[in-house]
């Protein structure tokens, strides 16, 4: 009965009592996370706070020492991961690897196994539409290794959306992207979220973007220090808990809601 009560319906991500040591460091020390379906959740926290490690646990890339994780109501495994998409920080592409954008997108489609031999009209139409959705249709035949950070992130988004996921996990997706590029990237994520009604969990450093685009924020520092709406979490006390004692959100002459940590 307890189990049934715990697995509440309508949660996209459910994490309970997650512990993980990496080497000598206890990176996660009892993390609890409840992400409702349809939310845009941001995980924030200082370097080494376990944000990326938590995301890696959700994806089955790290095996926690103890605790329980459920995605879309199921334990982490190949079956549920078919309904999950992941956008990494960046590709580890060697400059020498001449994979084109079209070929890269084909790797996501099981039906496009024969991409080597023929350009399939239907597949190409599908891939062009996916690229148009993220505003980069012109890059269709370009080699992946020659793209800018911002373009590559959009290709990764298009890649992740090809299979119609219900849950999108992004790991610091705008690391290495310039400021205007970052803003338009988050606007794209918000637009996709509204159009496809999926759940988004993203790890981010940029508090101003989180403030503007997230519906719920978790501040992490080995444990969840505080959680709530961006307005609730981004006050001095909460941030101090997560980032340490000398931290205050500092308001510049920026557009409303623009926060920095100093």
């Amino acid at each position: 009965m307890a189990e049934i009560r715990f697995h509440r319906a309508g949660l996209a991500v459910e994490v309970r009592g997650l512990h993980l040591r990496l080497g000598d460091t206890a990176v996660l020390r009892g993390v609890d996370l409840h992400v409702p379906r349809g939310a845009i959740v941001a995980l924030i926290g200082p370097n080494g706070s376990g944000k990326t490690t938590l995301l890696r646990c959700l994806l089955g890339l790290e095996k926690p020492d103890s605790g329980e994780i459920r995605l879309l109501g199921e334990p982490v495994g190949p079956k549920v991961l078919q309904r999950v998409a992941y956008v990494p920080q960046r590709l580890q592409l060697d400059r020498n690897f001449v994979l084109s954008v079209r070929e890269f997108l084909c790797l996501r489609l099981k039906s496009a196994r024969r991409w080597m031999w023929q350009g399939h009209r239907q597949t190409d139409d599908l891939l062009r539409a996916a690229l148009a959705d993220v505003g980069i249709e012109a890059l269709f035949d370009r080699p992946l290794a020659g793209l800018s950070g911002g373009q590559l992130q959009r290709v990764l988004i298009a890649f992740s959306l090809l299979t119609g996921p219900e849950l999108l996990l992004l790991d610091e997706p705008t690391a290495g992207v310039d400021n205007p590029g970052e803003r338009s990237f988050y606007e794209l994520i918000t637009a996709i979220h509204q159009r496809l009604k999926l759940t988004v969990v993203l790890v981010s450093h940029d508090l101003s973007m989180v403030y503007r685009h997230a519906t719920r924020v978790y501040a992490l520092n080995g444990v969840v220090c505080c959680e709530g709406t961006p307005e609730e979490v981004m006050n001095a006390d909460s941030l101090r808990q997560a980032y340490g004692i000398h931290v205050t959100p500092y308001h510049h002459d920026h557009p409303p809601g623009h926060h920095h940590v100093h």
Partner: peptide, 22 residues
């Protein structure tokens, strides 16, 4: 190699992404 071309290419591009893709 030809049978596993997609998998090998994706692993080369990003191992974690390949893992999450099953």
């Amino acid at each position: 190699v030809l049978w596993n071309l997609n998998a090998l290419a994706l692993i080369t591009a990003h191992e974690d992404l390949a893992h999450v893709s099953g």
